[in-house]
Simulated scan of single mutants.
Amino acid sequence: MRHFTKLVLGLMLIVAVACARTPPRGPAGGGGGGVYVGGTVPELGDRKPHAWRNGHPYNHQVHGIDISRWQGSIDWGRVRAAGVSFAFIKATEGGDHSDPSFQRYWREAAAARMPRGAYHYYYFCRSGAEQAQWFIRNVPREIGSLPPVLDLEWTNSRNCPGRPGPAEIKREANVFLDIVGRHYGQRPIIYTTVDFYRDNRLGDMRAEFWLRSVADHPRMTYPGQNWAFWQYSGTGTVPGIQGDVDLNAFAGTSSDWARWLSTRLTR
């Protein structure tokens, strides 16, 4: 517990330092020919910025990324210096595939003192229990890690083309959440997309949500749904990463983020 307390205090110090050097918020619509995001993290950008009208991600104080093997080599020091506050890293999918870059990213992000967590891409041809055990086999249980994430969306796999009904999906997903939650001591976050959320009526599931919404604010695309993270772009640009990267915003302020970390990190 003493080690965990020191870790949390260290992360809170990182948050405080980042806030102290945060520049004034930029224009609500971004700018700079689609390069300058503005807001509280001006070094982040977007190749195809959206004209936000019902709520602006760039005015959120805490931003992060989610990545997989396709991001290639990453300069984590530059990523952190650019104002990125967290990273979710793809670890596994289904019951027999692991991302070949996961272990490297996991170590490198930790060395850069980047709060990071792992996510699992769910397949409907394996049980929730099988997939939970596969995730546990591949993702270390490390003090100070962000909560695990269960990625629920419709897949386009030739090997798993079926689409179970909402009751089956939620039953098996809850099995995954229970097993993984017990192992890591934190109930996983659910990542999902607009169509999957609507098709399967996920709002009654017991979990924090990370919502994909790249064309409007989540309050418009997921009416009434509380959320912790918002994936607002798949065409983001981040110093230290070549090519496009997904950008995400945390729901609260920097102070809220520090409090969230103090309760949701693996102990």
Rank of each mutant, 00 (worst) to 15 (best):
R107D: 14
P100E: 15
W230K: 01
G128R: 00
W70V: 10
L202H: 02
Y123I: 00
A87R: 00
A20R: 11
H50F: 14
V180Q: 03
R107A: 15
G224C: 12
P115R: 08
R141H: 12
E43W: 02
R158E: 15
A215I: 12
C125D: 11
A91W: 04
R78K: 15
A111Y: 12
I143E: 15
Y123G: 00
P42Q: 01
F135L: 07
Q186C: 10
G33P: 06
T155A: 13
G10D: 14
S213H: 10
F4K: 15
R158W: 14
R78S: 13
H56K: 02
A81Q: 13
C19L: 14
Q242W: 08
T266L: 10
H50Y: 14
Y119L: 06
V180H: 01
A109M: 05
A112W: 12
A215S: 15
P148N: 04
N248D: 09
R141L: 10
P188G: 10
G117S: 06
N156R: 15
F229T: 02
M114F: 10
I143N: 13
K90F: 09
H56C: 04
P148F: 04
R107L: 14
G181C: 07
T5H: 15
H50T: 13
R206G: 06
Y184R: 01
P148Q: 07
T235M: 09
V245R: 03
A112G: 12
E142I: 11
G203M: 10
R21Q: 13
A215W: 15
G236A: 05
A167F: 06
H63A: 04
S254Y: 05
S255I: 12
G31M: 05
K48T: 14
F229E: 04
I14T: 14
R163G: 03
I241F: 07
P42M: 05
E172L: 03
Y222L: 07
A82F: 03
G117N: 02
N200S: 00
R163F: 00
G144D: 13
D96C: 13
V15M: 05
R141I: 08
H50V: 11
P223C: 06
R69I: 08
G162R: 11
R47C: 04
W227D: 00
Q103K: 14
G64S: 03
R212Q: 11
I169P: 01
D246Y: 07
